[in-house]
Design a protein around this nucleic acid. Structure first.
Length: 462
RNA sequence: GGCUGCGUAGCAAAACGGUUAUGCAGUGGCCUGCAAAGCCAUCUACGGCGGUUCGACUCCGCCCGCAGCCUCCA
């Protein structure tokens, strides 16, 4: 029985799909004006893992993750760069897909873009105006009237009166209520604009997700996810828009992942304390980053530091080491470990425990190396289960011999040659030479390991 | 100010009302020419104060500390 923590009820609930055997999941994706940072990577990896697990459980999943390709920041950045908006957004969409592939994130089934959903956005705004939930302000912008939606605040646990008491910057005088938010913005000079019943303009941020999600998954679907910071106001506003427009329940389960932190502080673009995925990839192998992300529960904060990444690298090396030189078979899986793994994953996708099961498995595998049958079963089980986390699918030999940089065949050949020279030196009992070769390689980040039968292997230190 | 959430050993990170988490690091041993890897053993815990209970790290209350949201942010 799969349990998922639902932000709406603040409880873990047994997951019951709306339609038996099917799951619709929408995740708020990136605004594409810059490279993805580790915080974005967390969203991608976490929901990729959720998606993989739903499929593993046999659900027919439709996973939608949008791209916000029109907003103030995009316009500003394009202007600063002296670049066409579409040129900028296409560039960063490509970069995002590259990062995604690097982190073994499988593409979502649908990836709608805001600029390609203008019709459904306009339709939804029309309905909201017809229903008296939205109005045209005296500056021509269209606003959502939050006081008209009785459940406003139900997701974030906020209450309009308290919010109004809070300090607010720059209250827009065209609004009836300071908490009202924009559905449609009138165009300014040199901005992209679409024709609408209210004149040339562009959509506000929140409406695009309401339009795209209901468009792709229907008025009512199972899961909506995103980072914690989207809880309010973004997701709150989505509920107001979608439920206001359709009169139906919008989403059954709201999932929010925790932040990536640096020095106990949220990693964010505005604080300028972020590392982009491609920066980190220069230093660490992609699978290490994925392992690092999954080593804490998706709702917990995740502190980013070199120490953490190094630990993740060592831990992952242990698993790959266990798989080294093993045979694999797809049809023999150890049931006990599978059950333990499932128990962890079904408890709100508890990946730290799922990983601990993999380590238990690795220990037993290391002990069973002299029994081919047993080690094949355990190795196959380890690789099979790890696959649902998007881990351990590389050839162990390749993983262990690779570094963060692109692999270099000539460098590897040279290492092989030195390792062979060392084997020869060992045979001649020339320990001094053997040790100096080993020390030499170690200085280059290559660890040599001997095996009982006189052969030697090597791996690159993370 | 309002609303969330968190506080576990050297570091990271989980579960659980009474029983080994797990990874890294440390210590002792086995293995090894010596190492590394691996195996075995082992030391460091549950922010503070009360309460409930036969028994609480786990439930409740208060306090302290931290983070986040209330403005664009994954």
């Amino acid at each position: 029985m799969l349990k998922i923590y639902n932000t709406l009820t603040r409880k873990k609930e047994t997951f019951i799909p709306r339609v038996e055997g099917k799951v619709g999941m929408y995740v708020c994706g990136m605004t594409v004006y810059d490279y993805c940072h580790v915080g974005h990577a967390r969203v991608m990896v976490v929901f990729d893992t959720v998606a993989r697990y739903f499929r593993y459980l046999g659900y027919d999943l439709t996973y939608v993750r949008n791209v916000t390709d029109i907003d103030d920041k995009i316009i500003k950045r394009a202007y600063e760069n002296g670049e066409e908006i579409t040129q900028l957004t296409e560039r960063f969409i490509d970069a995002m897909h590259e990062d995604e592939r690097a982190l073994f994130v499988l593409p979502p089934d649908q990836e709608p873009k805001a600029t390609q959903s203008i019709d459904s956005i306009i339709n939804m705004i029309c309905v909201l105006i017809d229903k008296g939930l939205a109005y045209v302000g005296n500056n021509g912008d269209v606003f959502y009237a939050v006081t008209k939606f009785k459940d406003y605040g139900k997701l974030s646990g906020k209450n309009l009166d308290d919010l109004q008491a809070g300090e607010r910057v720059d209250v827009d005088l065209a609004k009836q209520n300071p908490m009202d938010f924009v559905l449609w913005k009138m165009t300014k000079v040199n901005e992209p604009a679409w024709d609408s019943p209210w004149g040339l303009g562009r959509p506000g941020w929140h409406i695009e997700c309401s339009a795209m999600s209901t468009c792709c998954l229907g008025n009512h679907f199972d899961i909506h996810g995103g980072g914690m910071d989207l809880q309010f106001p973004h997701h709150e506003n989505e509920i107001a828009q979608s439920e206001g427009a359709t009169g139906e329940t919008f989403v059954n389960v709201w999932m929010h992942n925790g932040f990536v932190r640096i020095n106990e502080e949220k990693m964010s673009k505005s604080l300028r304390n972020f590392f982009t995925v491609r920066e980190v990839l220069k230093q660490y192998k992609p699978e290490i980053i994925r392992f690092f992300i999954l080593s804490s529960h998706y709702r917990s904060p995740l502190n980013y530091s070199d120490e953490q990444l190094n630990d993740a690298g060592t831990a992952l090396t242990r698993l790959y080491n266990a798989l080294r030189d093993c045979d694999f078979s797809t049809d023999i899986i150890d049931k006990d470990y599978k059950v333990k793994f499932d128990q962890a994953m079904q408890d709100d996708f508890n990946t730290p425990i799922a990983l601990s099961v993999l380590f238990d498995l690795a220990r037993e595998l290391n002990k069973s190396k002299d029994s081919i049958n047993q080690s094949t079963i355990l190795a196959s089980t380890l690789k099979y289960l790890a696959g649902f986390l998007g881990l351990l699918q590389d050839d162990p030999e390749l993983f262990l011999k690779s570094g963060a940089e692109e692999s270099d065949a000539t460098a590897d050949a040279l290492i092989d040659k030195l390792v062979q020279e060392r084997i020869d030196a060992k045979k001649a009992k020339n320990w001094a030479l053997a040790d100096s070769i080993r020390d030499n390689l170690k200085d280059q980040g290559v660890v040599v390991e001997d095996s009982p039968n006189g052969t030697s292997t090597w791996r690159r230190h993370n």
